[in-house]
């Protein structure tokens, strides 16, 4: 009796396992393919991400990605395959290595330098012109340009 029960239990467990296996869809969906394809660019159609590129070459690449996903390759492994075969320029994001670091370093450096220059310039433009060093009551008066003073004197004379 025990043997029968054990056999039934094992059969039940085995049937559960196989049903789970058969329930899996072996063909990756378009969304799964496009999730990887959107991170790649075909060198033939520059500036067009692989997931929306309409050419035959791109269709072949997407089919290849589908096959690689079905074979169990990870996203990183697929991207590495494309880099090995077609060069790093196929990546939407340059790899963080070698001279490609420039793509990551240069923009923030340029923006930072621009911000510093802008800040200094604005500071210089908004700073009031320093009064000449003097003493007593004169110090509180705003300084006058020599030419403006003469101009005002001439105006007074004419009145």
């Amino acid at each position: 009796m025990k043997k029968i029960l054990l056999t039934l239990a094992l059969t039940f467990l085995l049937s559960l396992f196989t049903s789970v296996v058969f329930a899996q869809d072996p063909t990756p969906s378009d969304d799964e393919v496009n999730a990887v394809a959107s991170q790649l660019y075909c060198p033939v159609c520059e500036s067009t991400p692989l997931d929306v590129c309409p050419t035959e070459a791109c269709r072949q690449w997407r089919d290849l990605i589908r096959q690689q996903l079905a074979d169990g390759m990870t996203e990183d492994q697929i991207k590495q395959y494309f880099v090995d075969n077609y060069g790093a320029r196929v990546l939407a994001e340059p790899p963080k290595q070698g001279s490609y670091w420039l793509f990551y370093i240069l923009p923030p450096v340029i923006i930072l330098a621009g911000a510093i220059i802008l800040f200094r310039s604005l500071k210089a433009w908004t700073k009031p012109i320093a009064a000449p060093a003097s003493s007593g009551a004169e110090r509180s008066e705003p300084s006058k340009d020599e030419y403006v003073s003469k101009f005002e004197e001439e105006l007074k004379k004419r009145k």
Partner: peptide, 16 residues
């Protein structure tokens, strides 16, 4: 053979 890494086409600056 395949143009691995598009290295050869870059030497020749292939346009298509």
């Amino acid at each position: 053979g395949p143009d691995m890494g598009t290295k050869i086409s870059q030497i020749f600056r292939v346009r298509g």
